[in-house]
Amino acid sequence: MTSAISVRNLTKDFRIGIRGLKLRAIDNLSLEIPRGQVYGLLGPNGCGKSTTLKIILGLVSATAGEISILGNPSATASARERTGFLPEAPYFHKFLSGRELVRYCAQLSGVSAEKVGQAVEEALALAAMTEAANRPIGTYSKGMLQRIGFAQAIVHDPELVILDEPTAGVDPVGSAAIGRMIHAMRDKGKTVVLCSHLLGQVEQVCDRVAIMDRGKLVLEGKVEDVLARRDRHVMTIEALTPAARDAAETALAAHGAKVTSVTHPRRSLEDLFRELVTGSHDA
């Protein structure tokens, strides 16, 4: 099965000023995002996460490299029909009600006239916005804006959902609600790609993460693999040689302790992130 998103050797230069100066926002980035997983794209501000997402969605052109979405070249209508997107700090027409917005987006996404009503109600229910759906968007709180943004992103039942900072500015209750929505999408077999600064939440909801810094990929892998500290060990004493075990048990028993397991200790995703990224910025 093809990847949900395949990025190969992606480079993006932005021209700055009129002297032909260039700023390299993304530098030879390659990613394979598997289907049916929640994938976290992390990095400090300005590291190229949002630009990567925009290139994936065809909103910004790449200087070099290849991208495919669900087996299709990116930026094709067919790829976008199967993709949902929630931009960072979404803004919608204030005069529309939540229900009108979701219906509008469903129709733009090609949901048929017979199915649009049901699709809208299902998306509103999943985003817990049914009760407030008839209110104008101008009266919504930040958390409600994110949730209605989530509803418009999933209303056409996409295979791939891309969320750019879905919890930015949202209180912990709202963040937890968005986390549940992401889990619900994964349970339905969808691929979710998200950028977030809430590393604790990313650790909880993501299956895989990629960390970017200054346009480059610095780490990629399964969450449990990248968080495991392989330079240290927690030992399960039963797995050791008998002699060592005896010695250890004797030593520990003298202190009234009993050894039951050896496992890899974990550090938090936040610690890992700081270690990988902050140091290079201090330099």
Binding site: S78, E81, F85, P87, A89, C105, L108, S109, I162
Partner: peptide, 14 residues
């Protein structure tokens, strides 16, 4: 400026 274009153009809208 309000970035509604991001939401719209990410859909199958040319």
């Amino acid at each position: 400026d309000n970035r509604t274009a991001l939401t719209l153009l990410a859909k199958p809208l040319s």
